[in-house]
């Protein structure tokens, strides 16, 4: 399966489970490997998190495959949260997203402003990308 197909599938599943539309934009595509499956799992948590808690009418999911890395952005214009706060479900999810990405040598960046929404950026270097 390719990343593009898997991301579409993820989006449809989250839409069905949580009743919030997930808009997917994909630039480039590649076959899935173990690292990308882990990143997808992290991306799913971020997407579910947005759909469940942000209150935004839509969640945007963007993936880009470059020669040396693959990145994924999950964005909503919902309630936002304080990435530094320790309480609540949000932090738990942020931690588990970080855990998954750390194990594959990936990176997580969380941007969020209360009242404006949030964006979670995941990226992982490609092991077998062409040079």
């Amino acid at each position: 399966m390719t990343l593009g197909v898997a991301v579409e599938q993820l989006a449809r599943e989250v839409e069905t489970d949580h009743g919030v539309p997930v808009d997917v934009v994909a630039v480039g595509d590649c076959l899935l490997d173990g690292d990308l499956r882990a990143m997808l799992a992290a991306g799913r948590e971020a997407t579910v998190n947005s759909a469940k808690w942000s209150g935004a009418p839509v969640v945007s999911l963007f993936t880009e495959v470059e020669r040396k890395r693959v990145s994924m952005f999950v964005r909503d214009r919902g309630s936002g949260f304080d990435p530094g706060a320790v309480s609540a479900d949000r932090q738990g999810i942020a931690t588990s997203i970080r855990g998954r990405m750390d194990r594959i040598g990936g990176k997580v960046t969380i941007r969020s402003t209360l009242g404006e929404g949030s964006e979670i950026e995941l990226s992982v270097p490609r092991r077998n990308g062409r040079t």
Binding site: D23, V25, A26, V27, G28, S60, F62, E64
Partner: peptide, 14 residues
């Protein structure tokens, strides 16, 4: 739209 922006990036990159 986001999707058109994605298409264009993809088309010009490839």
């Amino acid at each position: 739209s986001p999707r058109l922006a994605g298409f264009v990036l993809d088309a010009f990159a490839s």
